[in-house]
């Protein structure tokens, strides 16, 4: 596999993810987790949630924590790829 095929695959992945935004500009793009919770509430209105999260972050804090999670992961992956790359050059 070459750098070009890698770029092609990544480009295709970006296209797949970006396409819905262009194809369905009016869609709400809410989360499926919430959609499923709503479906449960709609079909089983008698079901009572018996626990609740003991802490729910605000939208802003939530995005920070998700960003931290991704950044931590990217750090790990980038470190390993970088080390490999460095060894190959020697």
């Amino acid at each position: 596999m070459t750098a070009r095929s890698n770029a092609l695959l990544l480009g295709l992945a970006v296209l797949i993810v970006a396409a819905p935004l262009a194809l369905r500009p009016d869609a709400p793009f809410g989360g499926t987790d919430d959609a499923a919770s709503e479906a449960v509430a709609a079909s089983h209105p008698g079901y009572e949630k018996w626990t609740a999260p003991f802490w729910t972050p605000s939208k802003e804090v939530e995005s920070t924590l998700f960003a931290l999670q991704a950044a931590f992961g990217a750090g790990l992956l980038g470190y390993v790829l970088g080390r490999r790359h460095g060894r190959r050059d020697k």
């Binding site: 819905p20 709400p28 793009f29 809410g30 989360g31 998700f66 999670q69 991704a70 992961g73």
Partner: peptide
């Protein structure tokens, strides 16, 4: 860690 943090748009209009 990276992938499960990314909520991506899909053709159904949900993420």
């Amino acid at each position: 860690f990276i992938l499960s943090a990314l909520k991506l748009p899909s053709v159904t209009g949900s993420c």
